[in-house]
Amino acid sequence: MNDKIGEFISEKNIVLNLGALNQSDAIQKLATVLKKNGYIDDVLAFQNDVLEREKASTTGIGNELAIPHGKSTHVIQTTMMFARNEEGIEWNSLDGSKVKNIFLMAVSPEDKGNEHLKMLATLSGELMDDDFVEAIKKADSKENILKILQKRGNER
């Protein structure tokens, strides 16, 4: 099984200066990019599915990070987006921190045990690694963020 993160994402999956005003706005802005790149078929329906998941329990995992995710019938192909928001966004985070770094996971319910899910599982595990999180937070260009994601994926 292949879990190399870098093989599934490109600079198109990364947004710096997202400019979102709040959680809902952030997810909508990212969903708009996903639609444009052909990963989902309906921005508002997908946004709704992600916000529903968020209601069950926050995905603000602390340390200015959030990992909203939606298993949604509106996902054409499982993927992820990374976004940086300069202003911290209120996210009900586990440690109360406002969110500046977002990994949005879009998952098709059709996917079971495939390499895209494996990629998301690998990424989730990496988020518990303080060095990885610090590197992501410090990275200031799409190229650098992609490099960090690719490097980590390759090591596993």
């Binding site: 998941r53 990992i67 998301l120 989730s124 595990g125 990496e126």
Partner: peptide
């Protein structure tokens, strides 16, 4: 619940 992220974060 979704089996996408928290399962693997908790394990790590």
């Amino acid at each position: 619940i979704a089996g996408i992220a928290h399962t693997y974060m908790a394990a790590a």
